[in-house]
Write a protein that binds this DNA or RNA. Structure first.
Ligand SMILES: [Zn+2]
Ligand SMILES: [Zn+2]
Ligand SMILES: [Zn+2]
Ligand SMILES: [Zn+2]
Lengths: 153, 153
DNA sequence: GCCGATGTGCAACTGAGTTGCAAGACAAAT
DNA sequence: ATTTGTCTTGCAACTCAGTTGCACATCGGC
């Protein structure tokens, strides 16, 4: 992933009313380059030597969330996964699918999940859907060549 | 909550292939007496002086889950909420509603949430729905008498 | 370039949940 | 009722994502 539009990143930050700093540009870059939701640790790993301090990454993510650039996608094994906020409506984010075999979690950005029916007395502002089952990689593994079980998705 | 059928509790444990012990009966009692999902801490608090050791409560809950008496309802603020497994189908548990104002979480046991449409390549075995918004207690508080904001739901 | 407002790094902390192990309680067999 | 092997419990110490306080560095408007 060769520098995805470094100036656009700066632009994004400014549009969110955020000061442009090195940690913020690199963290945002990592988020945009990632295939799906990522943890603080995964961001740090992806940035390797250039990674800011752990605390800074958390505070940066917090600032991004405040500015609606990023949101918390889901909690898994007691750790948060973050992802860019595009492709999410106010009412509901796309569903996320966790494979019970390989542990990976995919964004089902295509799926149109119906909103919950109204419930007397409640005002539903946001809906979050998590699905579990077998992912394409693990479903009916041809022959014996299954999938190397990775740590995270 | 005056001893909800102590013998039935023993029966439940045995039916799950579990040994009958004091910690198990009291913890199961607390779970059944609770209005909704509860944390380890809330169980301990509800049992007060009679509460078993924290580790024992966790291991007890684990055993209950194994025996399908209890399940993990949802993760909130990095802590698990547990509830009895009745009222849950294999395919999906009832949705849970978290109020963004008072922080309470309610079981929407009545709500019939449609299952996610099939996605090419995936096998969906379980669906979990979390809703957020305003609960009846916080929605349009008449006059100024809102709700005392509690710590947890 | 200067300076107040923001952002960053470090070390120490928090708190839910886990692990290893010795001591205790259950229940099946005698 | 006593024995006996197995499963449970409690304690202390640990883990690990995330947070906090504070001194120092950086940003960007002037
Ligand atoms: Zn898989
Ligand atoms: Zn996603
Ligand atoms: Zn409320
Ligand atoms: Zn529930």
């Amino acid at each position: 992933m060769p520098e995805p539009e470094l100036d656009q990143i700066r632009q994004l930050l400014k549009s969110g009313g955020l000061r442009v700093t090195t940690p913020r540009t690199t963290v945002l870059q990592a988020l945009l380059a990632a295939a799906g939701p990522v943890t603080q640790e995964q961001i740090a790993q992806a940035l390797g030597k250039k990674a800011p301090n752990k605390v800074t990454i958390y505070r940066t993510l917090e600032a991004f969330i405040e500015a609606d650039l990023v949101h918390r996608a889901f909690l898994k094994d007691r750790t948060w996964y973050f992802e860019p906020a595009h492709r999410c409506s106010q009412e509901q984010c796309h569903p996320h699918f966790s494979c019970t075999r390989c542990g990976r979690t995919d964004c089902l950005t295509e799926m149109k999940m119906p909103m919950a029916p109204p419930v007397a007395g409640y005002i539903v502002q946001h809906q979050r859907v998590q699905l579990e089952g077998l992912c394409p990689r693990c479903k009916a593994p041809l022959h014996s060549s299954a999938v190397d079980i990775p740590k995270t998705g």
